[in-house]
């Protein structure tokens, strides 16, 4: 029922019905803001992103054919806008999973090393989520988007693959790699002094 209702709303908005569009805005602004906030991690940028998303959506609405759900579409626009903003804002250093990760002095190989220490020891506080996102900031933005969509927003693989425009298989394997990488970094940061120093440096940025 909700879906049908939304189709009608979108159709009306596409014809220039501001009221219908405003209803859509009201429906999605919170979700989009949360997604954007988790991706760009500051409120001003998140607001900018949300505004841009609705602008783009509004402009392109007449061309929206309804091949995908409206929600999928806006989330995709939102992810892209956020990643764009990140790319623009911090000409950040890109870490690729295919290369060994250089963390200041220490080098972490791609394989998970068995330090004998358990991530669960660290993974206690709910601040860990923030820590994870902070770690992800320096990774390729797509990994960040994947984890945010999957864990923070709770989307299914199918939905994520539609939002990010990648195949199910890619979603699966990239999530796997992203998680391994995060674990690796968290473990490394906790126990290697040089990495702790590196972490401090990161925090001061």
């Amino acid at each position: 029922m909700a879906f049908l209702d939304e189709v009608a709303l979108v159709r009306r908005a596409a014809k220039g019905d501001m009221e219908a569009f405003e209803t859509l805005v009201r429906r999605y602004e919170k979700g989009l803001y949360n997604l954007a906030f988790r991706l760009v991690s500051n409120p001003e940028d998140a607001m900018d992103v949300v505004q841009e998303v609705f602008l783009k959506t509004y402009q392109a609405l007449p061309e929206f054919r309804g091949e995908s759900k409206f929600s999928t579409w806006v989330y995709r626009v939102c992810v892209n806008a956020s990643l764009d903003l990140l790319r623009k804002k911090q000409k950040f250093q890109m870490y690729s999973l295919d290369e060994p990760l250089a963390l200041k002095d220490a080098e972490v190989s791609r394989e998970v090393e068995d330090s004998g220490k358990r991530t669960e020891d660290i993974v206690e506080t709910r601040f860990l989520g923030e820590a994870v996102l902070r770690v992800l900031k320096d990774l390729e933005p797509h990994y960040r988007a994947l984890l945010v969509l999957c864990d923070v927003q709770g989307y299914s693989y199918q939905e994520i693959s539609e939002i990010l425009g990648m195949s199910l298989g890619t979603v699966k394997s990239r999530l796997h790699r992203a998680r391994n990488l995060v674990r690796k970094i968290l473990v490394g940061e906790q126990f290697s002094p040089s990495c702790v120093k590196g972490d401090e440096g990161r925090e001061h940025r």
């Binding site: 919170k30 949360n34 409120p43 998140a46 993974v123 709910r126 923070v152 998680r179 674990r183």
Partner: peptide, 20 residues
Amino acid sequence: LTEIRNLKRALQSLPEVEPP
């Protein structure tokens, strides 16, 4: 598995933020 679960839980536990 536990680590991954904890990781997921940590992210899930992030509170929903209220837009300005």
